[in-house]
């Protein structure tokens, strides 16, 4: 029991990552109605490009990280512009399948480029553990939590204070009305992919010093982020945050207090129970604002 604070701190760290990924899923879903499986690859490429720029090209972090995020955002935007927009069928199921196909393709490409070995990125600042009461936290956990909080605040300001952000919420709320006031829906869809790419890459980069990164790291993280989005209420930013944090806490408390072998099982059983009782997720889409 005395380790409970430790589990909570670890839970908040992974939870923040899940929340960022969940918001990425939600933003794209709200603009397009699809579940973008490519989100997994945004995570992978964020981490792996940083490996390339930092370890191989020897750029410092403050160049390597923004550069990787920009590359993945461009990749996400291009994916929408070239692949999604030109799809002959606008059927949601077909579009989702296109994202699955693209995801498999990019995973294979990552294997070709970087091989199957995992890479370790060094922490952003030192490795000296910090003692908080009877728990120990490494500085990277604080980086993850801090960067996630700042990102969420910036996103909130974007969605509520800028006309483009408001237009994105308008498209999520009522596409026909958005068209009528003169919003170019294609532009908003494009932007949603860029934001999805940004958030996926960011999550993949800041977690890499803790868990290592490899060509297939995005799949499981993406799945958890997707689960977090459903848990909280798919499509909502508040729901994504709550779902992400809750899933992170469940996993770590489950692993610590019961058994680490059952960590995924415990988390997903709770997920299924929540969905069973409240299909719209904890925050229930009907009442909350979408992003």
């Amino acid at each position: 029991m005395k380790n409970i604070l430790q589990f909570i701190l670890s839970g908040l760290t992974t939870g923040s990552i899940y929340a960022l990924i969940a918001i990425g899923f939600s933003v794209i879903h709200n603009a397009t109605g699809i579940v973008n499986i490519m989100q997994c690859e945004f995570i992978t490429y964020g981490g792996m490009l940083t490996v390339t720029f930092y370890i191989f090209s020897k750029f410092p972090y403050f160049i390597a990280i923004p550069l990787s995020i920009i590359c993945v955002s461009i990749m996400a935007g291009l994916f929408e512009r070239v692949v999604i927009r030109n799809s002959k069928s606008k059927d949601i199921i077909i579009l989702i399948f296109i994202t699955i196909g693209a995801s498999i393709f990019f995973k294979g490409l990552a294997l070709l480029i970087w091989g199957s070995d995992p890479f370790m990125l060094p922490p952003f600042s030192g490795n000296q553990p910090i003692k908080i009461f009877n728990a120990v936290i490494i500085p990277q956990n604080l980086w993850v939590i801090g960067i996630s909080i700042i990102t969420v605040i910036l996103l909130h300001l974007f969605f509520h204070k800028t006309i483009t952000g408001k237009a994105m919420r308008a498209v999520a709320n009522n596409k026909k009305a958005a068209q009528i006031v003169g919003i170019n829906i294609n532009r908003i869809v494009f932007l949603s992919f860029v934001i999805g790419g940004f958030l996926g890459a960011l999550a993949g980069i800041i977690i890499a010093p803790i868990t290592t990164t490899s060509y297939d790291v995005g799949f499981m993280l993406g799945l958890k982020g997707f689960a977090a989005a459903i848990l909280g209420g798919y499509g909502s930013m508040g729901g994504s945050i709550i779902g992400g944090i809750l899933l992170g806490l469940l996993e770590n408390l489950g692993a610590g207090l019961i058994s680490s072998e059952y960590k995924d099982v415990i988390a997903f059983v709770v997920l299924i129970l929540v969905i069973y009782v409240k299909p719209s997720g904890i925050l229930g889409l009907a009442k909350v604002e979408r992003v």
Partner: peptide, 16 residues
């Protein structure tokens, strides 16, 4: 209208 947005946000979007 944008039923999930505020009245003022609806009006602002009219001037998008």
């Amino acid at each position: 209208i944008f039923s999930e947005l505020t009245v003022e946000e609806n009006l602002e979007l009219g001037a998008y």
